[in-house]
Write a protein that binds this DNA or RNA. Structure first.
Lengths: 176, 176
DNA sequence: AGCATAAATAATAA
DNA sequence: TTATTATTTATGCT
């Protein structure tokens, strides 16, 4: 029977999976149930919580809204939810206004939208890279200004460029 | 009849024709499909076309191929795309250099040939993956050597394998 | 003719 | 910096 014990793309989610990897689904379900009760006590809807969390924690947690999530993410999410809820309860004690403010108005730190460089920009970046793969902060700033891209985006581009160069070069200098 | 659920790039809205405004959606779909084929024949990426068009015509092309666009904009965009593409093809006839100049970028560097793993190799990879979805660099190197594949290819395989696992194996942990 | 997934690369975590 | 994730692109296949 042990032909393809592996992760199963095609099947419906099963009940008792994933005790592998040390993730305790039962525990997570228990937590979720409890979480719901406490959420309802605060008079919050799933949507409210989901949106608040997405705002503060980024889209990685957006699945919460859909209640559709992998065991792994669930594991990661649990402490975050716990902390968030505790905080919410704390504010609630000081009055519902405070709670609503906490839920409602956070600055959003979603994941940055993936920027796509124009072919021209890439050409320029590459020519700089050839000359110097490790530009100083000053140089980065200048390149960014020349290309009219955000400085941070340019900096990251150089990081990634070095990385892929390392990954793809056939001679693996760093291997033992 | 259990179908695989798979990533849910959910269904297209099934409006047949928005006949009110005399816009023929079917025709637009047809055009988009055709456009993609011609674009690929030129060796151009969506990004390249998008950027070139954004430069000359302003934004909102990228949504076009995905048909993620209102019928109205699509209608407006169609002739623009048609004209641009025809022109691109024209330049291409005079040599790829001309095309690239027209588009505005560097000559297309070819992408790595898609490697196809033998079923045996996949079996081995999967068995490794089951035991450990996150092998160290050292382990990757060894697996690659054992299977006689390029190390980078094996590394990427693990990346993608994690990715699809995450995308496909969702359970409703928060189910009540 | 569409799908599965290999490849590429921007963003983020550690 | 290195390692990994997230997102996009496009190729090889049926």
């Amino acid at each position: 029977a042990s032909q393809h014990p592996g992760p199963n793309y095609c099947d419906q989610p099963q009940q008792a999976v994933s005790s592998e990897e040390g993730i305790n689904l039962e525990e997570i379900r228990e937590f979720a149930k409890n979480f719901k009760i406490r959420r309802l006590s605060l008079g919050l809807t799933q949507t409210q919580v989901g949106q608040a969390l997405t705002a503060t924690e980024g889209p990685a947690y957006s699945q919460f809204e859909k209640l559709d999530i992998t065991p792994k993410s669930a594991q990661k999410l649990k402490p975050v939810l716990e902390k968030w809820l505790a905080e919410a309860e704390h504010w609630n004690q000081k009055g519902q206004q405070n709670l609503m403010e906490f839920v409602g108005g956070e600055p959003s730190k979603k994941r940055k939208r993936r920027t796509s460089f124009t072919p021209q920009a890439i050409e320029v970046l590459n020519s700089y890279f050839e000359k110097n793969a490790l530009p100083t902060g000053q140089e980065i700033t200048e390149i960014a200004r020349e290309l009219n891209y955000d400085r941070e985006v340019v900096r990251v581009w150089f990081c990634n460029r070095r990385q892929t160069l390392k990954n793809t070069s056939k001679i693996n200098v760093f291997q033992v």
